[in-house]
C-alpha cells in the first residue's frame, strides 16, 4: 500500500483541495463580516451570491459592457444590503440570535425567488476571460482558474484587513464587533455601520458569486454553496476571518483527499456530508472552533 503510494498524485489532489477551499473561504468571509458586527448568522449569504451572479450575467447578456455591469451589480448589491438591514434586521434589533437567523432564512427564500422571477430560471454561462488550462507548478498540475480565484480571494482578504485596520469606518466596525453598547455610548452610529457591513457583505457576495458562477454556471444551485461555507464557519469560528480562511483550506483539502482516498469505501458521493462530519468531530474536541473566542459563561 505504502510502496505504490503516488506522491505526485497526492500533491495534485491536495493542491486542488486547497484551492477549492479558498473558494469556500470566500463565501465564509461574507458570513463572518456580518456575524462579527451584528451577531447575525446570515443564511441569506448564499442567496445574495446567487442574486449578484444572476444580475451580472443577465446584464452582460443584454449587451452591457463588462465593467459597467460590474459597477451596476455592485450598486444593486449595496442597495440590497442596506435595504435588508433597514427592512428586516432593524425591526428585529435585540431579538435572540436564533430569531435573526430564522429571519435570514426567510430572507434567502425571498431573494432566491425574486432573483429567478426577475432573471428567469435557465442556466447561464459566465465567462470571466480566464482560460482553464492546467498549469504545471513544480511538477504539479494546477488549474489556472483556481489560481486566479485564490489570488482574488487573497486580494479580497488583504483589502478587508486594510480596511478594518486603517479606515475610520473600518475601525468603528471593529468597535461595534467588540462591544455594541460601548460603541453606542461613544457615539458611533450603529445603523450606519450595519448598513456599511451589509454593503460590504454584498461586495463579498458579488465576488464570490462571479467566481463560483464561472465555475458552476449561474443557476439556482449557486445559492447552495452556503451549505459548503457552514462547516467552514463551524470549524473556524463564526467571528474570525482568519478562521474562515484556515477552515476553508482544511475543509477543502480534507474533502478532496477523502473523496479520492476513502470515498470508494463508501460508494462515493461523500462530499455532501464529509465536511460536516470533519467540522463536528473537530468541534467535539474544541467547542469554540479554531480561532473563535472562548466564551466565559456569565451568570
Amino acid at each position: 500500500m505504502i510502496a505504490d503510494f503516488d506522491y505526485q498524485f497526492f500533491l495534485e489532489v491536495l493542491t486542488g483541495g486547497l484551492l477549492s477551499g479558498v473558494m469556500y473561504s470566500l463565501v465564509a468571509i461574507g458570513f463572518v463580516l456580518i456575524y462579527k458586527t451584528s451577531g447575525v448568522l446570515n443564511f441569506a449569504q448564499g442567496a445574495l451570491l446567487l442574486f449578484a451572479a444572476l444580475t451580472f450575467v443577465s446584464l452582460v447578456e443584454r449587451g452591457m459592457p463588462f465593467a459597467l455591469a460590474l459597477a451596476v451589480t455592485f450598486a444593486v448589491m449595496v442597495a440590497l444590503g442596506i435595504g435588508i438591514e433597514r427592512a428586516v434586521l432593524r425591526p428585529l434589533t435585540n431579538k435572540p440570535p436564533i430569531t435573526l437567523f430564522m429571519a435570514t432564512l426567510g430572507l434567502s427564500y425571498i431573494i432566491e425567488g425574486a432573483a429567478q422571477l426577475i432573471w428567469g430560471t435557465q442556466v447561464h454561462g459566465l465567462e470571466l476571460g480566464i482560460e482553464d488550462v492546467p498549469l504545471e507548478v513544480g511538477g504539479v498540475l494546477v488549474s489556472q482558474f483556481d489560481i486566479f480565484a485564490a489570488a482574488v480571494a487573497a486580494a479580497m482578504v488583504l483589502l478587508l484587513s486594510l480596511f478594518f485596520r486603517y479606515t475610520r469606518i473600518g475601525l468603528s466596525f471593529r468597535a461595534v464587533a467588540d462591544d455594541q453598547f460601548a460603541a453606542l455610548a461613544v457615539g458611533l452610529r450603529l445603523p450606519l455601520i450595519w448598513a456599511g457591513v451589509w454593503a460590504a457583505a454584498g461586495l463579498v457576495a458579488l465576488v464570490a458569486g462571479l467566481l463560483w458562477g464561472a465555475r458552476l454556471g449561474v443557476q439556482f444551485s449557486l445559492s447552495l454553496v452556503v451549505l459548503k461555507a457552514l462547516p467552514v464557519l463551524v470549524l473556524g469560528g463564526f467571528d474570525s476571518i482568519l478562521g474562515a480562511i484556515v477552515g476553508g483550506l482544511l475543509i477543502g483539502a480534507s474533502e478532496k483527499l477523502a473523496e479520492v482516498y476513502i470515498g470508494d469505501y463508501f460508494g462515493g458521493g461523500i462530499e455532501s456530508w464529509f465536511a460536516y462530519v470533519v467540522a463536528l468531530v473537530f468541534l467535539l474536541i474544541r467547542p469554540s472552533g479554531l480561532f473563535g473566542q472562548k466564551l466565559v459563561e456569565r451568570v
Binding site: 436564533i98 462530519v277 467547542p287
Partner: peptide
C-alpha cells in the same frame, strides 16, 4: 451536549445530508 445555538443548528445539517446520502447510496 457540547454545542449550542448556531453550532448545533449547523451540526444538525450533518444529519440531513448524511441520511439522505445513505438512503440514496445504498
Amino acid at each position: 451536549l457540547r454545542l449550542r445555538g448556531f453550532y448545533l443548528a449547523v451540526s444538525t445539517l450533518a444529519a440531513q445530508f448524511f441520511v439522505q446520502w445513505a438512503l440514496t447510496k445504498f
